[in-house]
């Protein structure tokens, strides 16, 4: 197995959360995504042993869900929403800004491994349309100008930790609702920052 001991230990902890091993498949795929930035064939083999199903069964599940990436992603996964509320609030222009800045088409990653761009379906930020997620951290109420600022800031600052509240304060506008107290936790990498996955960290 090519996962290190620490990751295997964490994986086994996740498996124990569920009455049946196979239920852990989803979280373990997130774990694989956090390890490599995509679901490598190698991780598929490791997971297939951990949950006791064949590799192609793991692959079948991992390719069903859009958040499990089958190709390596950049440090920042830029997901611009294009569903109805964003669409009628000019998400197209946001998409254009991101495309222009990164030089990427949909589902492409740049050579430096900095950005991956994707136009995605509804991310539940309709009240704050148009919206984007950077590594699943939401920024609402974007303008084309602030979108460009956001991209530049990411490129120049290359923060390891991406925090929704910080991005929103810097680059966001109208929100879907009052976010109230600012949160300082966020994520690194193209995977949701979530305690069970050990992918969430606090910004100091």
């Amino acid at each position: 197995m090519s996962w290190d001991e620490k990751l295997i230990k964490q994986a086994k902890k996740i498996v124990k959360l569920y009455p049946q091993k196979r239920s852990a498949l989803g979280p373990l795929l997130h774990l694989a995504q956090s390890k490599d930035g995509y679901i490598s064939d190698d991780s598929v083999s490791v997971i297939s042993e951990l949950v006791g199903i064949t590799e192609v069964q793991v692959k079948s599940v991992s390719t069903f869900y859009s958040m499990y990436k089958q190709e390596p992603t950049g440090k920042y996964l830029l997901s611009v929403c294009k569903s109805i509320s964003c669409e009628i609030n000019n998400s197209n222009s946001i998409i254009d800004v991101v495309k222009d800045f990164t030089g990427l088409n949909n589902n492409e990653t740049d050579e430096e491994g900095l950005f991956t761009f994707e136009a995605v379906e509804c991310i539940g930020a309709c009240g704050g349309a148009p919206a984007i997620q950077v590594n699943y951290e939401t920024v609402e109420g974007l303008s084309t100008e602030n979108t460009l600022n956001l991209c530049e800031w990411l490129k120049n600052e290359t923060p390891d930790l991406v925090v929704a509240d910080e991005l929103q304060n810097k680059f966001g506008g109208t929100k879907s609702f009052d976010w109230a107290i600012a949160d300082n936790s966020g994520t690194t990498g193209s995977v949701p920052g979530f305690q069970t996955l050990n992918t969430t960290k606090d910004k100091k």
């Binding site: 199903i53 064949t54 192609v56 079948s60 390719t63 869900y65």
Partner: peptide
């Protein structure tokens, strides 16, 4: 009982 062929993608 040897599921080696499966649906991929959606």
């Amino acid at each position: 009982g040897d599921p080696l062929i499966e649906f991929i993608q959606r």
